[in-house]
Design a protein around this nucleic acid. Sequence first.
DNA 1: GTCTATAATTCGATAGAC
DNA 2: GTCTATCGAATTATAGAC
Lengths: 191, 191
Amino acid sequence: MAFTERSRAAREGILAAARRRFTEGGYERTTIRMVAADAGLDPSMVIRYYGSKDGLFSAAVDVDLRLPDVAGVPPDELGWILARHFVDLWESDFGRETLLILLRSAASHPAAAERVRTVFTDQVIPLVRKATGDVADADVRAALLSTHLLGTVLCRYILQLPPVVDADTLVASLAVLMQHILTGSLAEDQS
Amino acid sequence: MAFTERSRAAREGILAAARRRFTEGGYERTTIRMVAADAGLDPSMVIRYYGSKDGLFSAAVDVDLRLPDVAGVPPDELGWILARHFVDLWESDFGRETLLILLRSAASHPAAAERVRTVFTDQVIPLVRKATGDVADADVRAALLSTHLLGTVLCRYILQLPPVVDADTLVASLAVLMQHILTGSLAEDQS
DNA sequence: GTCTATAATTCGATAGAC
DNA sequence: GTCTATCGAATTATAGAC
């Protein structure tokens, strides 16, 4: 960091406020003035510490999905374990900011979309390759997995589509579908 | 309509330009000036015909999924038929504007999110109820169906997550998953 | 019906006093 | 390190000439 220890509280306060605002309203609807007001500081301080609004966004977006190691997991338990992990993640404060902050902005902010692609390539694809034993269509299965996961975040937390089921019910249906996506057939027949 | 026939071309030109812009950049990144420039008119005309930016958005967003009638369809063909329908819809110019225009804005614009909920309630739920013979968990299945469909639009057309598969491959995997969501088990076991 | 001109805000970002 | 003051640009929206 290029700043002294004395300003640490201010910098962290700005970052925390920024994460909340970006999570809630996305990139475009979040203003530097809002963030500064939340942090109890002057807007010029935000620029001083993070250079620009884009710089602030980059600093606020640091997504680690904290994916579990699936090395020794039996193949038919993958769906349940991952479903449990993601729902736990989303229902925590950390997870809410971690994924919503990106998804809320990605639809209209190119830099955020690029960041999602990076998370997918660096975190999801390696997981699926390891989980499936690196089958030929692992990348396609990873994409389908991400499709349903991001779709769930979108429908449940952003669009708030009815019916809103409880977390355990969500885990159950998610586990079934993720299991199918990871180890089931992806062409014709089979219910 | 409250305006004369003489301005019809202008009004339609504005609306067409607005749909393209809202589709491409979402609500926040689209300005009345852009729309007016595309339509070859003055920005004040946009206000005159549509009242405000929100009024223009409302006029531009009129989503009809054109869902097929599934009354006589054999249950085990539902997935394939719906998958084919949606991919054909998305790959057409009409479909691109129909769904992208909403989804691009829904993540950060509350009014757009509300519109998506309406489309879900009025079009998707009735379809799934009819398709499944109105089973007890039809609404949950409708939500899961929407989750995967919106996830697909998000990942494929907005985030452009790799790998980008061709339309036929997309239909195949989509058909399998939609079939499972509509008629498969949603709890435990079964691959 | 269309455009010019402009009002009224709001934004991101900068300069400089303390 | 923090804040006051402000610039310059962009936005939505309006008033009125033609």
